[in-house]
Write a protein that binds this DNA or RNA. Structure first.
Lengths: 208, 208
DNA sequence: TTATACATGTGTAAAATTTCACAAAGGGGG
DNA sequence: CCCCCTTTGTGAAATTTTACACATGTATAA
């Protein structure tokens, strides 16, 4: 089988990048080479081939990769051949921001619930999504079949909320809170640090 | 000198993480060990020491690092000892979202301008920030001393807008558009791919 | 003063990731 | 059918990143 060796996380990240290229070139050609993908992405062409080879032999020597096929393959590898329900937990500035951001939905992600603890927010609706009481998380998660919790709560509350997410049997967390969360290892956790991204820029700018 | 060897990007990313820990522990202790930082962050303690050692000898053997000192050091290393003016370019869903998100401002980043090409948006104000015509980018950038452009425009327009940013002499771009931008190498570019983050999660969930 | 426990800074080893480089194939033209 | 150009898939090398391990320094207590 193909999935004997462990696949680097970085490879998975690049799959997303390759997928994106297709929406930009698909119209003009039916096929693309690793060199072509390399040019579009800035990733070394050997790297491209190696990334794809982890999952199978999708290319044809002398020809390249069928865009249609490869698109379908990567879509399937990334689990994007179906929809995923997500809930936003914490409807403060960032949470509201993420709720408004339709980019999540644009691919296969649907934000179908929002939760907060603030009585002034609960029962309100934002962008057509009702805000539930966080206390009802387990019920909401079950009912709406939530599989991804998008966390944007205050730092002090983050771990406690994460515990509730785990208790509600939601299997994955996308954490926007700049705090290290401890979760059982069967729960998938991914951190996004927006301030950190800016800091990487100022670090580089400072040296001038 | 301390800056002879090249510092890994990953090290810089971890500095942000260390810095964050201090706001959570500072009150209780005056000092922290690499082991302590390791426990807070999940990063190996030798890694912590190596990261810090790139920039100088901040610790004391048998004692650890003075939190106050280390905080000041990292703050300075990351260039966070002053404020940075940022502009949000593209006030669609994500742009609005980012504009509302005060987390950027919470540290040393100030979003002081917003720009768009849509006549219906230009001259409006959002969160107290006036939306300018993108055509005026160079003037706005000069006047407001913009040093970071936060890009959230449609994919088709991204490269062209990036060119304008470069022409406006803005030295750094934080790009939220899932497109590879080509910029001169004196311009700092950092990509944030929100959909990609979710895709990393679904990839892992799919395998069950 | 000496023993003990702690913790840094760093040389070295290990692991992971990226890049090179080439044999093996595919395709097209004559 | 043969030649030539292209491009994959993949060992092996190179590079980068992480982890180990320990000599060296610090503090405390008896």
């Amino acid at each position: 089988m193909t999935r004997k060796v462990k696949i680097p996380v970085s490879t998975v990240g690049r799959l997303s990048i390759y997928l994106r290229v297709f929406s930009q070139v698909a119209k003009t050609q039916g096929t693309i080479s690793s060199k072509g993908l390399a040019e579009w992405t800035g990733i070394n062409s050997a790297q491209v081939r190696k990334d794809l080879a982890y999952f199978g032999q999708f290319g044809r020597r002398g020809v390249g990769y069928s865009i249609q096929d490869l698109k379908a393959q990567i879509t399937s590898i990334l689990g994007l051949d179906r929809e995923w329900n997500a809930a936003i937990i914490g409807v403060g500035h960032l949470g509201t921001a993420l709720l408004m951001y339709r980019g999540f939905g644009s691919r296969r992600f649907k934000v179908t619930a929002a939760l907060d603890t603030d009585p002034d927010k609960i029962s309100w609706e934002l962008e057509g999504i009702r805000i539930h009481d966080l206390a009802d998380l387990a019920a909401v998660a079950r009912e709406k079949r939530i599989e991804i919790a998008i966390l944007s709560v205050p730092a002090e509350a983050a771990q406690e909320v994460a515990n509730q997410v785990v208790a509600a049997q939601i299997p994955a967390i996308l954490n926007f809170v700049p705090v290290r969360l401890v979760v059982p290892k069967h729960v998938l956790l991914r951190d996004v640090d927006l301030a950190g991204e800016l800091e990487a820029l100022t670090y580089a700018m400072r040296k001038r």
